[in-house]
Computed example of a mutant assay.
Amino acid sequence: MTAAQAAMTLTLESPRVEDGAAMWRIARDSEVLDLNSPYSYLLWCRDFAATSLVARAADGEPVAFVTGYLRPDRPDTLVVWQIAVDAEHRGRGLAGVLLDALTSRVAPTAVETTVTPDNTASGRLFTAFAVRHGLPLEREVLFDGALFPATSDGAGHLPEVLHRIGPFPHTGASL
């Protein structure tokens, strides 16, 4: 199934507060995202619904999501906070469909996200997005791993590498 075919069987729309629990579960089950509290997903659905999307199956249940916000100091820059796809729907290009739909809706000058070096799927997703849209991609460490507290198991956190994509041609602006 192609990305376009996968998207046709799903509905993309802004998240509702009622979607928070499902988004938390999808993030938890991804096993690669930093899991936020269930409460934060509820707040995200309330406060950042205009810069986020969920993909709904025919039964209305969320099967994937992308959350984002506009940077307060650069309101033309969309920061993609998390993007996750339920295991049953992976491998169909749905994350790319969500990212394309969100950037089309928000029409930012640039997109920023952070990716840890071990999250190869996200690295490939954002690289493919930049290539697909003919946009420059810059990478640099935003937060060194030493800035994060140790987890309960004593493990450290890998650095968060900033991926800055843009400027988008519709804006003519520079980063």
Rank of each mutant, 00 (worst) to 15 (best):
A57N: 14
A58G: 09
A58C: 07
D59Q: 09
G60A: 10
G60Y: 11
G60F: 05
E61Y: 02
E61I: 06
P62Y: 12
P62H: 11
P62T: 12
V63S: 11
F65P: 04
F65W: 11
F65G: 07
V66P: 01
V66A: 07
V66M: 02
V66N: 01
T67V: 01
G68Q: 02
Y69F: 15
Y69T: 13
L70S: 04
L70C: 08
D73S: 14
D73W: 12
D73F: 06
R74V: 12
R74G: 11
R74P: 03
D76Y: 03
D76T: 04
V79Q: 07
V79N: 05
V80L: 14
V80Y: 14
W81D: 12
W81V: 07
Q82K: 06
I83L: 14
I83W: 10
A84D: 07
V85Y: 06
V85T: 09
V85D: 08
A87E: 15
A87L: 12
A87R: 15
E88Q: 15
E88G: 15
H89V: 05
H89N: 09
R90I: 11
R90V: 06
R92F: 14
R92N: 12
R92L: 14
R92D: 07
G93A: 12
L94N: 00
L94H: 01
V97H: 10
L99D: 04
A101P: 04
L102H: 05
L102N: 03
L102A: 05
T103C: 15
T103K: 08
T103D: 05
S104P: 01
S104R: 15
S104M: 12
R105T: 09
V106M: 04
V106D: 04
A107G: 03
A107V: 03
T109K: 13
A110R: 06
V111P: 00
T113L: 03
T116N: 08
D118V: 08
D118L: 08
N119L: 04
N119K: 05
N119P: 02
T120N: 08
T120A: 14
T120E: 14
A121L: 09
S122H: 00
G123T: 00
R124V: 09
L125C: 07
L125M: 04
F126H: 07
F126K: 04
F126E: 06
F126A: 04
